[in-house]
Nucleic acid binder design. Structure first.
Lengths: 244, 244
DNA sequence: TCCGGCCAACTGGTCTGGCCAGTCTACCTT
DNA sequence: AAGGTAGACTGGCCAGACCAGTTGGCCGGA
């Protein structure tokens, strides 16, 4: 037993611990979106900390979109909706969108081509399986989170069949960024059906071993998704009517 | 005219503006990952603000993962999360030459193409600079480590001019793997001269804005290096006398 | 000579207390 | 009754002090 000497002081910076505490209250729904926190001075005494420390905590939370500070009015709990869209602007997302999709095209097009060349029986099995599950999930009622997950899984299957581990990992990271950083474009009207058709073309081309067709199908797919995402960014209002 | 009394103070909170300023420096690469910022007290006086305000700005940036604060040491610029994840996922397994070069081709060919399209005066300056230094270093006596470093620097310049940050980070990681994982193929007889010629073609194509030529030059370059590496693997005895 | 401990000079972490600046409301003046 | 205004909230910002980890050099003893 070498844990004899526990640290006396709780770990982490004070402001960090305060931020955690507040965030807990929010996730535990003790504090709901729109609620106003007690005034800084009051809250500071309640927590037994100084105002600067509390303010640092509030800053870090508002930077992550959990709180909104309004001069002269108070500190409020943010809507999760704005949280997600905040991450867009916070990570200078509009600007990144082009780069992100350009990168996806660069990677996914050769991936589809290689997959058509290097396909194996088990590989095709993976693909078919991922494809079937995705199609299945698009039946009413649609669970969008699940669809997004399965869509990513299908793409991952393509890259897996392509047989380049660098490619697989890189696209994995890219996909993760897309999933956490933005909502799926699949729920835009018509996009889901269009996407399904594109997936079919990709799958068929790979099964047929037609590398050229696979590449062009993948390219069309990415560009379709890109165009949808662009339209979505231009008028995000409709999306906010949803639940988010 | 009722705009007679313009606000003296710029809009937004002070801490917010400070955070933006620092973030600008980071994205403009005036501050690079790993760099240490000046001490809080110093930086505060330099910016003409109080330490608490500066600290709030730092908090918000560290909450978003742009800065890392280490007690007793200083404030440091964080590596982008994407790079971290990429590095982690790409370096954690054994590397296959075929896959590595296939990936390089997939990435560097469009990079050269984009660089030709998006070139700017400063971009060309970077390229020319990197190119000149590389040529300079190939004069006798050749410092092979230096040549390898400058070779990587030239390629990095190409990607930088291409203007896709995801691409830059991915290739950065890939390059690192190549540098640490294998010795340069440049010291193989004749390869250095051939490589120099290929670099010239890439540089000229980008300067001319000829995207197509840039792509084919880059492709030829990667394939040349790949072929050399393959020959090298087949008869590695001579090379193993080297140091790596 | 070498090693250990100590100390000083960094660094960020926290606090106190004050004043400035928006926002809202209730009250007072017109 | 309508308007303006003063005050009491709210957060925003600052100065200065002291606490707390980190580091490296200095000094004394082995």
């Amino acid at each position: 037993m070498d844990n004899l000497w526990e640290p006396i002081q709780p770990p982490g910076s004070l402001a960090g611990r305060i931020a955690e505490r507040i965030e807990e209250l929010i996730t535990a729904e003790q504090l709901r979106p729109g609620d106003r926190l007690p005034p800084e001075r009051e809250l500071a005494t309640m927590l037994g900390v100084s105002r600067p420390s509390l303010r640092e905590a509030i800053r870090s939370l508002s930077a992550r979109g959990r709180l909104a500070v309004r001069h002269g009015q108070g500190v409020f709990v943010e809507e999760p909706a704005t949280t997600k869209r905040l991450t867009h602007s916070l990570t200078s997302y509009e600007h990144d969108l082009d780069e992100l999709f350009a990168m996806r095209e660069v990677l996914e097009v050769p991936a589809a081509g290689w997959a058509a060349k290097n396909r194996t029986d088990v590989g095709i099995e993976w693909l078919q399986d991922a494809y079937d599950k995705l199609i299945e999930a698009t039946r009413d009622p649609v669970d969008w989170d699940e669809v997004q997950r399965l869509d990513a899984a299908f793409h991952e299957a393509v890259v897996r069949v392509a047989g380049n581990r660098f490619l697989m990992r890189t696209l994995g990271v890219l996909n993760e960024i897309m999933v956490t950083g933005m909502e799926t474009t699949l729920r835009l009207p018509g996009r889901l059906e269009k996407s399904a058709g594109e997936h079919t073309r990709i799958l068929e081309a790979i099964k047929a071993g037609d590398s050229r067709a696979a590449r062009s199908a993948a390219r069309a797919h990415i560009r379709g998704a890109y165009a949808a995402a662009r339209r979505h960014m231009d008028s995000p209002v409709a999306a906010e009517a949803g639940e988010m």
